[in-house]
Amino acid sequence: MPQATTRGSAAELSAATTRPTLGAWLASDSAFKYTMVAVLVLGVIVMSIVSPEFRRPENLINILQQNAIIGVVACGMTLMIIAGGFDLSVGAVAAASGVLAGALSIEYGLPLAIIAGLVVGLGTGLINGFLVAKMGINPFVATLGMQAIVQGVLFIQTEAKPVFGLPDTWSDFGFYRVGFVPSTVIVFIVAAVACWALLRFTLIGKLMYAVGSNREGTRRSGVAVDRVVITAFAIGGVLAAAGGLMLVTQSNTGQPSAGATWALLAIAAVVVGGTPLTGGAGGIGQTIVGTLLLGVMSNALNIMSVSPYWQPAATGLLILLAVSVERYRHMKRSR
């Protein structure tokens, strides 16, 4: 509802303000956001009551640890979706980054390996962004093509075999904790805060919303919209690569087959939190909520010994639910 910082004779306009119906409430963004927070909190409370196993502190920390990686990838996905795109190549890029960094770290040490891994993400992200922005290729086609190419090259180079024998420094970092907070969770927090600040305070963040909301109009306002889209994809690629590196710290291997479900999971985390797939709106807060929601759901299904094959189906169901609600809200908004 508009909190009227009323000026002048704005009174005549107040007749147009929406009446507080259920539909109007659902259509407002804050309502949806808080609904998802409520669902998350409620889910955690209910599970904590019914399952002693769930409420064990070690299990709760585990949920955070296991979902920090997808959370980092989802932060990048958030920027791309807000700017009007999305990226299906994040999983393949993460795997390539992890394998390359793992292999390089054996001879050249971690710092160089990590930089090389992130450069893989930056490069593929820039190419994705170029294809979408400059060539006008649909993000679905562009990034699906990218995922096939990266995966193909990766499988040929590694003969589909994992890279073993990595320095222990990887797992030393991976299982390091500050107090009770796992290092991967700290990486997630840093990525989330950085992306949040980018969206909230910086020019490029504002322009990502603008481009996702009305690309041609923003272009006609004199904004270099192509650069905005390419930047979003580049950051998305780097964060996907970072996710791949984080995975190496958990297994101490470079897995060429890693990340197969990441694109779906990351997109799910974004839209389940309440960021519309149509771009122009949403934010990192929603993505954090979505990530945790998916994590808690998956953990709960595990504890209740539901077959792991149900996991993707449950995720898919949640995505369809979230997108349906979003469509409904969209219809409400455009009256």
Partner: peptide, 11 residues
């Protein structure tokens, strides 16, 4: 074409 609907007046 000119305005971005999802953004506020100031933006």
């Amino acid at each position: 074409l000119s305005l971005a609907d999802d953004l506020d007046v100031i933006d």
